[in-house]
Design a protein around this nucleic acid. Structure first.
Lengths: 185, 185
DNA sequence: GGACATTAGTTTCATTTGAAACCATCTGCA
DNA sequence: TGCAGATGGTTTCAAATGAAACTAATGTCC
C-alpha cells in the first residue's frame, strides 16, 4: 500500500547525478526512501538479529555479555593484550573495555598484570578458567556463523567477504571527514 | 602469540561435513576464531559505524534519535500505522516504539488517533511538521548510503543486495528454532 | 628539576535500554 | 451477564551505556 501520490517528490536539492542511480534504499519511481531496502537499515537489523542470537548462547551458559565475549575473543586470538590494544582491535571504546575487563576479572576469567616498565599500563591475559570458557564458546559461535552461511557456496562466501571489506572501508569515509568529531581508532 | 597447538580441535559435535569449510571467522590452520574475519562481528562493527554516522546527521539538526527516525521512516514509506505494525516492520520492540512515539508526539512530529472500533489501538500519523523533517532527512540518509556504495558498480550492488537478503533470511533461522524463546514477527 | 602537556585507564552522572509487571480493552464462551 | 484469557500499549525498575571529569604515571622542554 503505497501512499498514493507520495508527498515527497523532487522537492529537495542535490540531484542524483546520472552516473549511479542508488541501487538500494530508494524507490526510483517516487524517490521515497524504502526502509527495508535501505542499506544501513538492513545492516542494522541483520547485525542485531545475529548478535542477539549469539549472545543468548553464551549469556545463559556462561553469564558473559557481548563486550566480555569480545575481550575474550581478542585475547584468544592474539594472546595477552593491554586495554588500549583491545580497544584498537574491537571498535569498542575504552570505557566499555575497562568495564568488560572488570567483570571478567571478578569472574576470574582474566587476570591483569601491571607493566613494571610503565605502571599506567596493564596486560590482560586469560586465566585457565577463561581459556576453558573461550574454548567452549568458540565452536558455538562458529556454528552460528555456519548456520548463517548455510547454502552459500565457497565462491559466494568469498564474494561476500570482499564486499564487506569494501563496505567497511567506505564506512571509514563516513565516520571520518564530514563531521570531524569522534574519530575511529 | 598463537596458543601453540590450538586447544580447540575436533572437540565439539557437528562435524564440518566436507562440502563447506567455513569460509570466514576461523583460521584453517589452527581452527582458532579470528575475530575480525568473523562474520557476525564484522556485521556488528560495520553496522554500528554506519548507524552512528547517520544518526549524527539528524541528531544534531533535528534532535531525533535512531528509533524516532525509524518510526518516521516507516510512516513516510507506508503511511499511518499502528504501534504494532511499526514494531513488525522495524524489528524494534514495542517498548522502544512506544517511547519513540511519545517523544515524537511531544515534538509534534506525529499525531495519534485512538481507533474508535478498538480503543486499545491508535493510529500514528506524521504531522505536517513531521513530514517536513522527514523530507529533509531522507536525502541526507540517502547520501550516506551513496557514500557507502561509492565505487560499487550496479552489478556489485545487485550482488550485495541478494547476498544480504539471503543472510537476513538465514538470520531468521538463527532467531527462531534453537532457543525457542522470543519468536520473530 | 619542575611546570605542562600526554597517555592509560577508571569513575561519575545522566540518559538509554530491556525485561517484566502492569493497565485498559477486547474476545471467547459458559 | 460475567469472567478467564488474549492483545495493544505503557510504566517501572534495574542494568547497560557514553560523555566528560578524574587519577595516576610518563614524557617533554626549558
Amino acid at each position: 500500500m503505497k501512499p498514493s501520490a507520495s508527498p515527497l517528490d523532487a522537492s529537495t536539492a542535490e540531484e542524483p547525478d546520472g552516473d549511479r542511480e542508488t541501487c538500494s534504499g530508494t524507490d526510483p519511481e517516487t524517490g521515497v526512501l524504502v526502509l527495508d531496502r535501505f542499506l544501513p537499515y538492513r545492516l542494522s537489523v541483520l547485525s542485531n538479529t545475529v548478535s542477539r542470537s549469539i549472545a543468548r548462547l553464551y549469556a545463559d551458559r556462561f553469564g558473559i555479555t557481548i563486550p566480555e565475549w569480545r575481550v575474550l575473543a581478542i585475547l584468544g586470538d592474539s594472546g595477552p593484550r593491554t586495554s588500549a590494544e583491545i580497544c584498537g582491535r574491537t571498535a569498542m571504546d575504552k570505557v566499555q573495555v575497562s568495564r568488560a575487563i572488570q567483570r571478567l576479572m571478578s569472574a576470574r576469567l582474566v587476570s591483569r598484570r601491571t607493566d613494571p616498565a610503565d605502571r599506567r599500563r596493564a596486560t590482560i591475559a586469560m586465566t585457565a578458567k577463561g581459556a576453558a570458557v573461550y574454548r567452549e564458546v568458540v565452536p558455538l559461535a562458529l556454528s552460528r556463523e555456519a548456520i548463517l552461511l548455510d547454502g552459500f557456496t565457497a565462491e559466494e562466501c568469498r564474494l561476500l567477504d570482499r564486499l564487506l571489506d569494501r563496505l567497511a572501508d567506505r564506512a571509514g569515509a563516513l565516520a571520518g571527514p564530514d563531521d570531524g568529531a569522534g574519530g575511529g581508532a
